[in-house]
Write a protein that binds this DNA or RNA. Structure first.
Length: 110
DNA sequence: TTCTTGACAACAG
DNA sequence: GCTGTTGCCAAGA
């Protein structure tokens, strides 16, 4: 664990803590925001190591395919309570619930 | 020290 | 659109 890694983890926690209710973000997007798209896996690892002291809504973080964490059914329930709709296959509509810290209403494409 | 695993993303079928 | 395989980087045994 280097200082850079620790800073990356802190950035992940800080960003995840900014996720509003009713919206979700992907691991890859978080890594992309931190200028480290190759560290998408480390984002997921940071979430698993997410300390309760930060009160991080890690349940609002899903993978790029919109699928929830296998083995963690509670995540789906929590998101449903937030207002996020799930498909029959268990995937989330990232097209409608993907949170953007830079812009949160434009979805026309660019 | 090396090998295996993992809350993933991207590409192929 | 969904499932399966490959590659990335770090942590654990």
């Amino acid at each position: 664990m280097n200082e850079e890694m620790a800073a990356f983890y802190e950035a992940v926690y800080h960003l995840a803590a900014r996720i509003p209710s009713g919206f979700v973000v992907t691991y890859g997007q978080i890594a992309w925001m931190l200028h480290a798209p190759q560290w998408s896996r480390q984002v997921g690892r940071a979430m698993r190591l997410a300390p309760a002291d930060r009160a991080i809504p890690c349940h609002r973080v899903v993978n790029g395919q919109g699928r929830t964490v296998p083995g963690w059914l509670e995540q789906r329930l929590l998101l449903e309570q937030e207002g996020v709709a799930f498909r029959e296959n268990g995937c989330v509509d990232l097209k409608h619930y993907r949170w953007k810290p830079i812009d949160g209403h434009s979805d026309k494409g660019e």
